[in-house]
Amino acid sequence: MAEIINTMKRVAYYHGCALDGTGHGYNRSTRALAGALDLELEDVKNWNCCGAMETKNIDNEVQTYLSSRVLSIAANEMGHKKVMAPCNGCYHNLKKAEYDLGHKEKSREVVERISAKAGHEPYKAGQIEIIHAVDWIKESIGEEGIRERTKGKLKGLKVANYYGCMYTRPRHIFPGRDAGPGTESNFRPHFMDDILGAAGATNVDFPLKSACCGGAHTLCDSDTSTKLCINILQTAEAAGADVIATECPTCHAGLEMHQIRAEKVFGIKTNVKMIYFTQLLGIAMGLSHRKVGLQENVSDASSVLKAKGI
């Protein structure tokens, strides 16, 4: 039995597949941020896909098993009581697996059967707490801690915080939300606003912070996705934002790609830049643009930041 690790300062890190690919800047900045904040990330060993969308749409229980295997490794083999997933898709799927295993006998049966076949201990609901990167920062460092460390470095930067849909839906898999002061809200999420606000940024009033970007249909119905993304980008600009802060590699890539496609296909140009919240916070902590992987984003926010003296 592994030593039990139950602290926000040292968490199991499940970065998932997107952060190895298009979202590499998110991975790089999350790791750099951990170093700068004296937090420890321990990669989930021998991890697998969370089941994402494709598996889930074909077989719900297989997706639950895939996510449960990640949870089992983090809890049973690594001894962690907290696993952090920065990708909204991974975070959502791990939470969904946790919910299913706590409420559905069929899910438990399938997970036990496949786990036995695969030769590992089955994950049981409640063994580990699943957190997002925003929870990790907010709860381990807190707004006051961020304020002290960043000294208002993001002052003058107007940010539209875009949380995307999988961070808040469906409500029943996020039982700790909307539970009074200090908790995150499914209706109007605010943790990213709190973090970046504490680092000196001005959060604009952005009414589409959890609206659909059409991500699931980006390949089979690109025009719908592009139109939804254009509207998000234009709304952020109308709200006065210099940048859109993101916390999901799929949302981020979608906004970046459809910004380009919107100009090519529909002749609609928008100038707002996308940047991961971990990149912004890392820069606020004094890390270089390169250290947080700004060069790995398609949308290059460096000129906007430089113009603001950031």
Binding site: N57, D100, C165, R169, P170, A216, H217, D221, T224, K227
Partner: peptide, 24 residues
């Protein structure tokens, strides 16, 4: 945005689920 979402959802109804997150 509401118009784009609902219109898109209706137009792609034959392709499968528009919103993957709620499928399970």
């Amino acid at each position: 945005h509401l118009m784009l979402f609902v219109r898109g959802k209706m137009e792609v109804a034959e392709l499968g689920e528009f919103c993957c997150s709620s499928r399970p």
